[in-house]
Amino acid sequence: MNITRRRLLVLLPAAAIAWKHILAGTPEASPNYKLTEHWWGMLVDVTKCIGCGNCVRACQTENDVPDGYYRTWVERYHLEGWAFQNPKVDSPDGGKNGFPPGNQSGGKNFFVPKLCNHCVESPCTQVCPVGATFVTPDGVVLIDQKYCLGCRYCVQACPYGCRFIHPQKETAEKCTLCYHRITKGLTTACCESCPTGARQLADLKDPKDPIHEFLRTHSIQVLKPYMATNSKVFYNGLDGSVR
């Protein structure tokens, strides 16, 4: 093949871009998965959560989460009387090993599982200086670990405390909604391990997903609605005291 100087000048940048993609590695193949046909979220039924910590353990195992950091965790709330502004909350080890018996008798007790809310208007995505945090076309907020600077602005910007800096990688981390699983037709590790079905993965674009019927027939709330982040983790039975 006869390559002219002009043609070479055109080809070189294209080759450089192609090489960069090769170096970046190719994503795991999910041949039947179409990004534009899904819009992922999660349903958390607070009334069903028993605080067993299965979800936290499953998440840590599935995603190799370092000790002391949490992609998901469970909080225990205790309320006396009408003082919903002063709940007693604990989450020992993120609820990974369940909860010891509470000291208080009476009042109201319940568990609240927490995870990244995969917000449509996510503040973490907005503030990332290089766009390493992004929203996928199927509605999951992810972090490009090879691109993240580790500036921690996203950790500050998340109203829900869902992000942390991985102590070894020194990049931001959080729940990926088990993206490697859901793109293969599986559910998330936390949903799969929940014994009571308190967590349900939801595909908001799938008309057959039971989420639509659930949203229609139940009082649903999101965390900190005043933050206007358009959260996609929907809570059933969420008490007004939950922060």
Partner: peptide
């Protein structure tokens, strides 16, 4: 009191 578990460590 109670901190979200990832908040205990200061970032900045």
């Amino acid at each position: 009191g109670f901190m979200y578990p990832n908040e205990v460590e200061l970032q900045w």
